[in-house]
């Protein structure tokens, strides 16, 4: 009987091994640089095409040169700003402000989102306001902030906070809402209560929504910062990219204006691509929510 049992057991083992081998497909992934290349060249081609069209329009003389500078004019303007050191200084100032503002928003938005997501009365009270705030362009806060805080850093950070906190909090809320109730029940069966349940089940389960909120929160931080910098200008405030842009406008320096827009765009994209996109991809890929090859 026991010998027979062993035989049956071995049979079962090999059967299961066979099934497992049949059912799990090892995916071959391309080397990293190939994937990177595949993701990079299409946008590069698109940008190159755009520049070519721009140059053609410039050559055709549709608009006078002072209304539409050529790509090389803009490049020259960027080079001048770089050589003068203003570009680096402004970039550093803006990125620092954006980063600090974002971190502060994170510190406020995360607990706020948790409260709204988990406490029903708080949700009834603040939930609608929070989603409403998200659709309010944060530029609208600039005049009020100037009246409250004058032309100071506080004004800038206030506007950034008003832009980013609702996004981050709402991201947290939607992350929490998307947690399947089944996971919480599983947690309870496994003996997770209160804090342990939050730490081991609720928060990890809410992470994808939260990370989406962070990404959006950064976009809102950056936008709000630029709005604030464009409007709130004063020698007391360090030079930021927004202020640089407004300076060019006042000097009627069209290449400088386009260079400013380009700088803002590139910084925003760079931080999004280098920081938030990889984090989000990682979180999703670990859970099998995106195909490994894309």
């Amino acid at each position: 009987m026991s010998l027979l049992d062993h035989r049956a057991n071995d049979d079962l083992a090999s059967l299961e091994a066979g099934l497992d081998a049949l059912e799990s497909n090892e995916r071959k992934t391309l080397p990293r640089w190939r994937r990177w290349l595949a993701a990079t060249w299409p946008p590069l081609v698109a940008v190159a095409l755009l520049v070519v069209v721009w140059q053609l329009v410039y050559n055709a003389g549709v608009l006078p040169a002072y209304r539409l500078p050529s790509p090389s004019d803009v490049l020259a303007s960027l080079r001048d700003q770089w050589q003068a050191g203003t570009l680096q200084q402004a970039t550093w100032n803006s990125v620092r402000r954006g980063g600090l503002g974002f971190l502060a928003s994170l510190a406020i938005g995360t607990p706020l989102g948790l409260l709204v997501g988990r406490v029903r009365s708080v949700r009834r009270a603040i939930g609608p306001i929070l989603s409403g705030l998200q659709s309010l362009p944060s530029v609208a806060w600039v005049p009020a902030a100037i009246l409250w805080f004058g032309l100071s850093d506080a004004t800038i950070y206030f506007v950034v906070l008003m832009g980013a906190v609702p996004s981050i909090a709402n991201g947290m809320v939607s992350g929490l809402d998307q947690v399947p109730p089944l996971y919480l029940r599983v947690g309870r069966v496994l003996g997770a209560r209160g804090l342990a349940s939050a730490r081991h089940v609720l928060l990890p389960a809410a992470l994808p929504g939260y990370v989406g909120g962070l990404r959006q929160g950064w976009a809102f931080s950056w936008r709000s910062l630029m709005a604030a910098e464009l409007i709130a200008r004063s020698p007391d405030l360090g030079l930021g990219v927004g202020q640089l842009l407004d300076q060019s406008r006042q000097l009627q320096d069209f290449p400088g204006v386009l260079a400013g827009i380009l700088t803002i765009l590139v910084i925003g994209i760079a931080i999004e691509l280098c920081l938030f996109a990889p984090i989000e991809r990682r979180v999703l890929r670990r859970r099998g929510l995106v195909a490994a090859t894309s």
């Binding site: 089944l182 996971y183 029940r185 599983v186 069966v189 003996g191 089940v201 990890p204 389960a205 992470l207 670990r286 859970r287 099998g288 929510l289």
Partner: peptide, 14 residues
């Protein structure tokens, strides 16, 4: 306490 296996595997994907 009894152990429970749910209708779906309900493993945590993270």
């Amino acid at each position: 306490r009894a152990a429970l296996m749910f209708q779906e595997p309900a493993l945590f994907p993270w």
